[in-house]
Amino acid sequence: MKHAIVGCLLGTAVGDALGLPYEGLSPNRAHGLLGPPDRYRFCFGRGMISDDTEHTCMVAQSLIESGNDVNEFTRRFARRLRWWILAFPAGVGKATALSGFRLWLGAKLPTPSATHGSLTDTCGVFSAGNGPAMRATIFGAAIGDREVLLAMVRASTRLTHTDPKAEFGAVTVALAARESRKSGPINANLWLQTIVDTIGEQGVEFSELLSQAVQSATSGEPTQRFAESLGLGNGVTGYTYHTVPVAIHAWLSNPKDFRRAVTTTIRCGGDADTTAAIVGGIVGAGVGREGLPKDWLDGLRDWPRSLRWIENLGIQLASSRSAIESNECQSTQSTVSRVNLIAVIIRNLVFLFVVLFHGFRRLAPPY
Rank of each mutant, 00 (worst) to 15 (best):
G286Y: 04
I310A: 04
D69R: 12
S219I: 02
T96W: 04
V283C: 03
I346G: 00
E167F: 09
L230W: 01
G67T: 02
V262K: 00
C57Y: 05
V148A: 12
S331I: 10
V354I: 15
H249M: 10
P21D: 08
I49V: 15
S26E: 12
L63A: 13
G270M: 08
D271R: 05
D298R: 11
A90Q: 04
A276Q: 10
R41M: 11
G169N: 04
E290C: 05
L175F: 06
W191H: 11
S180W: 13
G203Q: 00
L149M: 14
V354T: 15
L25Y: 01
C43W: 03
I345Y: 01
T53C: 05
V173T: 11
I324T: 02
S306L: 14
I278N: 05
G7C: 10
A17S: 02
L159P: 11
I5D: 02
P255I: 07
D197V: 13
G117M: 05
R80W: 14
G235R: 10
T160D: 07
V236F: 05
R39P: 03
D298I: 09
A217C: 03
L349H: 12
T74F: 02
A272N: 13
G124R: 02
V287P: 04
P255L: 04
S211N: 13
A364D: 11
P255V: 09
T194L: 00
R39A: 04
F44C: 08
T263W: 08
P89D: 00
T275G: 01
T274L: 10
G269T: 13
C57M: 08
T240F: 11
F360C: 15
T56N: 03
S334M: 10
G100A: 06
S322Q: 00
N28R: 15
Q316P: 09
N130L: 10
N348V: 08
S253Y: 11
N28S: 15
G19A: 05
H116F: 13
A128E: 06
K108D: 03
A78H: 06
